[in-house]
Each structure stands twice: as C-alpha cells, then as structure tokens.
Design a protein around this nucleic acid. Sequence first.
DNA 1: GATGAATGAGACTTCATTCAT
DNA 2: CATGAATGAAGTCTCATTCAT
Lengths: 196, 196, 196, 196
Amino acid sequence: MSPRSKSQIEEMREKSIRKIYDASLELFASKGYEATSISQIAKKAEISKGLIYNYFDSKLDLLKGLMDSFSTVEAEMMTKVVDEDPRKFLENIFRVFFLELRERSGIWKMIASLSLQKDMYEFIHDMALEKLIVYYELLEQLLDQIGIENPKGEAKLLAAMFDGIGMHYIVISNEYPLDEVEDYLINKYCKHEKLD
Amino acid sequence: MSPRSKSQIEEMREKSIRKIYDASLELFASKGYEATSISQIAKKAEISKGLIYNYFDSKLDLLKGLMDSFSTVEAEMMTKVVDEDPRKFLENIFRVFFLELRERSGIWKMIASLSLQKDMYEFIHDMALEKLIVYYELLEQLLDQIGIENPKGEAKLLAAMFDGIGMHYIVISNEYPLDEVEDYLINKYCKHEKLD
Amino acid sequence: MSPRSKSQIEEMREKSIRKIYDASLELFASKGYEATSISQIAKKAEISKGLIYNYFDSKLDLLKGLMDSFSTVEAEMMTKVVDEDPRKFLENIFRVFFLELRERSGIWKMIASLSLQKDMYEFIHDMALEKLIVYYELLEQLLDQIGIENPKGEAKLLAAMFDGIGMHYIVISNEYPLDEVEDYLINKYCKHEKLD
Amino acid sequence: MSPRSKSQIEEMREKSIRKIYDASLELFASKGYEATSISQIAKKAEISKGLIYNYFDSKLDLLKGLMDSFSTVEAEMMTKVVDEDPRKFLENIFRVFFLELRERSGIWKMIASLSLQKDMYEFIHDMALEKLIVYYELLEQLLDQIGIENPKGEAKLLAAMFDGIGMHYIVISNEYPLDEVEDYLINKYCKHEKLD
DNA sequence: GATGAATGAGACTTCATTCAT
DNA sequence: CATGAATGAAGTCTCATTCAT
C-alpha cells in the first residue's frame, strides 16, 4: 500500500519545501511580499500552486515558515562566532555580518522591509524586536569587556550602524564600498587598545 | 463665464489633494504602498475613489506626487539648518533629524520602506540614491572642518547611524530611548574639541 | 436683467450644439460610440463636460440628436437630386452617394456600424430600416421607369451594392478605386439603352 | 504524479474555451465588442469571471482567439466549395455565403461591425483587408472564366453585393427575402450562357 | 449659459485559495 | 504527494452624470 518509505516521503517533503523557500525568498526580496503572487512562486519553484497549500496554510503562513527557517541558520551561525577574546568575538560578528550582507542581501532586505511594517505583520515585528534586544545586549557586553566608555549607548549606535550600512548597501549596491567600510570598522572597534 | 472663480477652484483642488496626500501618507507608512488600496485612501480621506483619479493618473503617480511634496518641505528645512560653525551646523542637522523622526516618522518609514525595493520603484531608488550622496558629502565636509580623522569614512558611518537609528526607532517605537540617543550623539560629535 | 437678446442666446446655443455634434461625429466615427467618452467629446469641442448636459439628457440622447441632424441634411440633398429623366435621376443618386462617401465617410461609417447593432440601439435600427425601405422603393421605381427587368430584385441588389461599396471603401480606404467603381457603375446603369 | 490525465485536462480546457467562445460570439454579435463586459460573458457561459483569464490574457486577446477560431472553420469550408466548372464553383460560393448568413449571422455581423472600426482594432482590419483581397481575386478569376466582360470591375461589385446583402439582412432580418435574393442571384450569375 | 469638482457604479484584471482527480 | 482548473473577492481605473457656483 505504501510504495514509498517514510524517509523517502520525508525527503520529498523537504525537497519541495526547500524549493518553495528558495523561490519565495528570491521573489519576496526583489519585489516584496505583497507584490509577489503564489503563482509566481510556484512557477519559479517549478511546482504547482496547489502543492504550496499542502505545506502552508496561507501565503502569510509561508512567510512565517520562511522567516523561521532563517532563525535556525542564524542560531548555528552564532555558535561559530563566539570567542573568549571580546575583540575577536566582536570582529567575528562584524565579519559575519558583512559576509551575510554580501552573499545573502536578499534575506537582509526582506526582513528589513517587513520590519518597517509592524502594523501589518506583527509576528515580523516581534521577531525583529526580540532580535534587536539580543543584539543590543550582546554588543553592550562585548564593548564593556573591551573597556569602552558608555557601552550601553555605544552598543545602540553600533547596532544602528550595522542596519544603516545594510540599508545603504541595498540602495547603492555595487557602488557601495562595503570592503572599505568593513575594514575601517574592524580597525576602529577591534584593533586599538581604546576606541573612544 | 466661469461659475467659480479661478482661486476658488484652485482652493478646492488644493484641499482635495491635501486630503489625499494626508490619507496616503498615513496608510503607505503603516501598511506599505502595495498593501494600501485606493479605496482605503478614499475612505480615510473622506472622498470618492474617482476623485483621486481627477488629480493623479494612477496609484503610482500619486506616490510620486506625494514624494515630490516632501522634497519641497525638505529643501526649506535645509536652509534653516546652515550655520557658519561646523559644530553648530552638525548639531542642527542632528536636531532636525531627530525632530523629524519624532514628529513625522511616517514619512521616514515610507521612504525607507520603498527605498529597499529599488527593483520595483526605480524613481524612488533614484531619489534615495541622490539624497544619500548629498548627505555623505555634506557630512564629510562638516566632519573635515571639525577636524575629524578620515572624514570620508566617518561620514558614511554617521549617515548609516542616522538611518539605523531610524529603523530601530520604527521597530521599537515608544520603548526606544530617542532622547538619550540624541543627547549622546550630539555630545559625542558636536561638543568636544576632538572626537576620535 | 437680460444682457443678451433672445437671438444672441439662440445663436450661442446653436454654436455650442454644432461644436458638440462635430466633435461627437469625429469621435464616434473613428472610435465608435461606446469607446468615446463624454470627456473626450468635451475636450475636442473645447467646451466643458457640463455644457453637454445642458443640451442633451444623456450620451444616448446626444447620439439621437446627431443622427437626427443628418436627416435634415439628407432631406435637403434628396430634393436636389430629383430629375424628370429617370436615368439622370439615378445618376444623380450615384454621384451624391459617392460624393458623400468620399467627403463624409465618417457619417456613413458611424451609421453603418450602429445599424449592425440593432439589439442595442433600437432607434438607430428603426431609422436604418425606414431609410432602407425608402431606398428600395425609390430605386425600384427608377429601374422600372428605365425599363429594367425585375426591378424589385435589381433594386435590392443595387442598394446592397451601395452599402457593400461603402464597407469596402472603409476597410480599404485610400487603396480602394472609388473613382473607377463610380464611373463603371454609372456607365452600366445609367448610360446604355438596356442594362440587363 | 499527475492527478488528472493529460487528455482529461485538455478536455476540460476545450470545454471551457468553447463555452467562452460561444458566449462571447453571441454577445459581441448582438451588442458589440465594446458594449459587452467580461461579467456578461462569464454569466452567459456559466463560469466565473476569473476563469476567462486562465485562458485569455485580456478581453482583446479573447476577441483575437475567437476570430482565429473562425479562420480554421472558414478554410475548411473553402475546400468544399471548389469545382472545375466555374459556374458551379461560383454557385457553391453563393450557396455557402447565404447558408452562413442564415445560420451564423452572428459571426458575419461581428466581423463586419469590427471591420468598420479599423482605427481601433488593427488586427481586425488587417484580417478583413486580407480576406477582401482574396475574394476579389477569386471572383475575378471565376467571372473571367465564365466569360464576363470586365471581370475585375464586376468582381468588386459582386463582392460588395455580398456584404451589402449581409448588412441589409442584419438590419431587416426576418423580413428580408433572403431566399428570393439567393435564387435571383444564382440565376443571374450562374445559369445563363452570358450575363452582361 | 457655462464650468469642472465630485460621485459611484461598473469595467477589466489579479490572485489567494479550494478541490476533484 | 501532486496537479491545475475553477472560484470570487478585491484591486485599479473609467466614465456618465450631478451640482454648486
């Protein structure tokens, strides 16, 4: 009766979901969530519209799933970044941030775009808020360890700088001197004995 | 010959356009351009759907008009901010930025949101890009006059910080310590003899 | 109290109505009645939309008025065409028909187009039907006087030929050999002693 | 893998398209293309508005599809009409024309109506023009073989007569003596040794 | 008489979602 | 699991018509 083994079916599910996520991300990032239709996603993912509804209850549910899928990736990334030396730890954070921006700017762009519409997508807003708090605290702790004055205030500025750089990079794209800015920042915050 | 005087008609037109702009801004800012319908705008503006098309050729044309209406306001603002003392000039920029963020966060939010979708709304992207360049240059010049090392790099960081603070304020809203950040920044950049 | 004399007002009315008719005809003929908007008519006539409703109750009413305006012109024309000699009378009809087709093909086109939609514009259908009957009878009478066999049948064919030539001329326009066809027809029907 | 077989799907598609075509033709013919709404077509076809857009990109695209669907039918018909004897060939053309007019006057009416609006629907104009040329040439050739004087001129008149009869039949409908006219024409053009 | 701002019904079209197979 | 035909609500936009002046 069951021609496929459980694991085979599971594999198919994952493969389909992966295709859906990839297509969604690409489209949501470039056109925005609202302007992307389920048909477009299905076409790009090379599956049928109906199949999407096997895995997701609605378009919004797909967005939620997609966002969740980032969290797991992000959590993994965080573990790799930890270092005993706060300067090195901070440098790693910088490097990962710039790497992500370069290689997966779509994700960044999509999240940023949706975060700005807190009235519509409350769950996105909640996610963004939570993440922001975590970042503030992590940065504050590191800056404190490094010995920077007013680590709380500087953490907020540094976090803002990250997202601001992200925005400007999206707007200016290839013309933006991402490498230079990266080097400059790392030098400024992670190499000297004192920064402020 | 003409039943209403020219000035009467002009007054009516301006009043309607103002109502449309106000409603549009509010909705575009909170829900986004795509997710806002002409019907919603008409309802909020308390006019008929059709009237919007007396003044704008399309929804996109309305967006363009709305964006243009900001430019005039912004240009005015810029003239008031100039000062011979670069520190004072910079401080004025800070103060105006934070004031705007507090009082007209909708505009900032809408522009930021649209700027992130450069693939869809090229004219917005062009506007954002142009403004960004102007800001980079102005900040660089001021930081140079103040005597900061590497004014080019610092200008980019400072500009990024502005927009990053904007984003975080939108996300966190009332909980964000906008006043503190403002004071801290002004102190850091505009009060000391040397900053870096 | 009355700054304009009655005749002055009447003159203005006529002038406005004439402008409306001219603009309507041009637009109805080239785009069709349905595809022409009141705004377009007002713009082409260089008057306001509202003024049209001073003279006509509705768009359909304007069409009726326009059609009626043709009837008067046509009646005049008919009187000039009469001749004691049936061959000459027929030749005059031919000549007027071709002249009209050449110089006012818009009218012909519009009437033909609307006549085909009897389900929608019953009054047009009634007009067309009535005129057709009159033509059949007139032609039959003339052909009979000229001595043609089966004048009833030939009258129908001749009338059909007229309208068919009109259609083909509209479709082919400048490439259609209207002059040749005119000469050929007149020669065939009006010059020989016997035709059939 | 595929839940419905390919042929099943194809069958569904054809059935829906047929329903759409049938409803469209009926409405376009009686009210005209412009005055017919997609909603009306959907209602008459007993399907949803949306389904029409599964098969056609736009209302104009539907019209094009409908017109194309005639061409295939017409081409088939032409093959059945050919005969070695030019008189018989011509008679067949007459008979088919009158048969079509009687049984599918809607098609004739729709094409005629649209052909008159060459400014709006260029593709229709092109179709009509092309067909007209073909008819002129075919008739000329046949009339020449039959031995009629001035076959070029007579072909034009005959073709015009066809379309004129069509118009008059549409206008007068049941009162029009289509049978008599058919017999009379066939007798006149196809039975005698000489006609002119 | 004349204007044009304003309305609202309805046009075309898109799209998330359902469902038979 | 997978498909895509089908639906219907809602979107953008048009337009005949009204009315205050």
